[in-house]
């Protein structure tokens, strides 16, 4: 067993476990994108970075728990870094609901990079799914650096592919499209966690369950960059 400290709390975990597992044991939530418990840890999206005692930021999913290690999962540096990473992700893949939700959770309010709509963040979950769970090895990374992408050999239909759909199943960004996103910003903001705007009726209507806006009592929309008028869920008008 290895004893370490996460956010000042002592935790004991079996040898060889990752910092992510140690944090989960304490119920501390660390955001992840390229991690899946059924697949090998890859450490590519860096969203799970945590701060070590010596000031380094390391990915919790791949960093092994070590005796006496001091870890901070939500320090200001960690949060700042995560916000920038989410901004980078959104700039590639703004139509992903998952990413928009992450943006909302982390108060990412704008995307300052030129947006490309690529629908793939190269997290590699599908590649690992195909190789490790399906044993098919039909898809993989090609090229490197900014030209990297995921495809089959020679971009042709692969003989190794059994069309199991495992790649689609596991993709964190292409499964659900965000319905609310539109110009001028890549940040949707429509699904910002519902801070109830209608406390008197909130308890009864439980707006966040899906009846958003129907009673007509909410006048303040979700938090968006200043330029937007109050909205009704999923819709947005420019002032």
């Amino acid at each position: 067993m290895t004893k370490l400290y996460i956010n000042g709390i002592e935790v004991e975990i079996e040898q060889g476990a990752s910092l992510l597992e140690a944090a989960q044991q304490l119920g501390i939530e660390i955001p992840t994108l390229c991690f899946h418990p059924g697949l090998s840890a890859y450490g590519a999206c860096r969203l799970c970075v945590v701060e070590l005692g010596d000031g380094r930021l390391v990915s919790a999913c791949t960093y092994p728990a070590q005796e006496g290690l001091r870890v901070r999962t939500h320090s200001p540096r960690v949060r700042r870094a995560r916000r920038m990473l989410i901004e980078l992700l959104l700039s590639i893949c703004p139509s992903s609901k998952r990413l928009q939700d992450l943006a909302a959770e982390h108060q990412v309010e704008r995307v300052r990079f030129a947006v490309r709509d690529e629908r793939c963040i190269l997290c590699g979950l599908c590649v690992r799914m195909c190789a490790e769970q399906m044993m098919a090895h039909a898809i993989g990374f090609v090229n490197r650096g900014y030209r990297r992408r995921i495809t089959t050999p020679f971009d042709l239909r692969s003989d190794a592919c059994r069309r199991c759909g495992g790649c689609l199943y596991i993709c964190p960004v292409c499964e659900v499209r965000c319905q609310g996103v539109g110009a001028p910003s890549a940040v949707c903001g429509s699904c910002t966690p519902p801070a109830p705007t209608c406390p008197p009726v909130y308890e009864d209507l439980a707006c966040y369950m899906g009846a958003t806006g129907e009673c007509g009592t909410c006048v303040r929309g979700p938090r968006t960059p200043d330029s937007h008028s109050p909205t009704v869920a999923g819709r947005r008008e420019k002032v």
Binding site: A44, L85, S91, I121, G145, R147, R148
Partner: peptide, 16 residues
């Protein structure tokens, strides 16, 4: 170009 492209900040960050 020389980044392997595995991790987001290096791949996308150097490009940006």
């Amino acid at each position: 170009d020389e980044s392997c492209g595995k991790c987001l900040p290096c791949r996308e960050g150097t490009h940006r």
